[in-house]
Simulated assay, not measured.
Amino acid sequence: MLLQAIEILTGCYILVQGNTVAAMGSFKGLKQVRKIVEDCIKNIKHPVYHIKELLIKRELAKNPALATESWDRFLPNFKKKNVKQKKPNTKEKKQYTPFPPPQQPSKIDLELESGEYFMSDKKKSAKKWQEKLDKQSEKSEEKKRKREAAFVPPKVRFSFCVFIYVSVGFSFSCRVTKSCYLFQENTAGLSESAKSTNDNEIADITKSLKKKA
């Protein structure tokens, strides 16, 4: 269906065989076909969007008033979405050398270098046993250090806790003293207000008695 639509709009005959596209037609139509094929291969734009653009251009070409104007405002703008694509495996090629790599020393060569080749079987077994004991002693020492590290008292944490305790106690004592002082002030204010109310009541009673007399 897509091929037929492109053939009708471009006026070209298109044949697809595998990864090859062959087209035959006018110069203008071949340019349009080439652009459609290249955008499709490079995954830039789907052929459907090109077909929509060609349909719009075909309708605009019929209007002679728009012959001298640009058609960009009439054409749709398709935004490409950022789709994750597989990254190609770019492995670094090693530099070619015609010479083979150097031969690795064999077990016998290593024994000749260390002098174990000329040792007796008893000495070899004794040496292996000694190496095994050394490894075991190293591992046991590491385990012992880890166990002892758990029982070491943390000095920094202890001092920090003491500081927090002292600061909290100080703030608590300050709050208590402030609250007591405020309570005393409130009680003093209440006693003064009670005295003033009593004096006012006595003055009112004396005034009323004088009026009656």
Rank of each mutant, 00 (worst) to 15 (best):
K178S: 06
Q32M: 12
S173A: 15
T206Q: 14
Y117L: 12
E142C: 05
S179H: 14
N63M: 09
E111A: 13
A213K: 15
E69C: 03
F118E: 11
S26A: 07
I44H: 02
L66N: 04
V48C: 03
G189Q: 15
D109G: 01
S114D: 15
I205P: 04
D134P: 01
N82F: 01
K128I: 07
Q130I: 06
I51S: 01
K62M: 09
L133M: 05
Y96A: 09
T90N: 10
K139Q: 08
S208M: 13
L15N: 09
E201R: 11
V166K: 06
W129D: 13
R58P: 02
E92N: 09
P153E: 03
S26R: 04
Q32I: 09
A23D: 01
S208C: 10
S120Q: 02
L9M: 12
S173F: 10
P47K: 03
R147W: 08
K86G: 08
P76R: 01
L209D: 12
N19W: 05
G189S: 14
K211A: 14
K57C: 12
K94N: 10
F160Y: 11
A188T: 14
P102A: 03
Y13F: 06
N200R: 14
L54F: 01
E131K: 12
F170S: 08
K143P: 00
Y96I: 06
E142F: 08
V156C: 03
K45S: 02
A22W: 05
P105Q: 04
L9H: 03
C161I: 13
Q136S: 02
V162K: 12
S125I: 13
S70E: 08
I51K: 00
S179Y: 14
E116G: 12
A23I: 01
K81T: 06
K28F: 13
K42Y: 06
F160I: 05
S114Y: 08
I202C: 09
K128W: 07
Q104N: 07
S208P: 03
K35Q: 14
P88S: 11
A150V: 13
Q95P: 05
L30T: 00
V16G: 00
M1H: 10
K178Q: 11
S179C: 08
E185S: 14
R145Q: 11
G18P: 03
K143R: 07
P105Y: 02
K35R: 15
K57H: 08
K28P: 03
F172E: 07
Q103P: 04
Y13I: 06
R157P: 00
F172S: 12
P88T: 04
Q136P: 00
E113R: 06
I205K: 14
D134R: 12
P76W: 04
P154I: 08
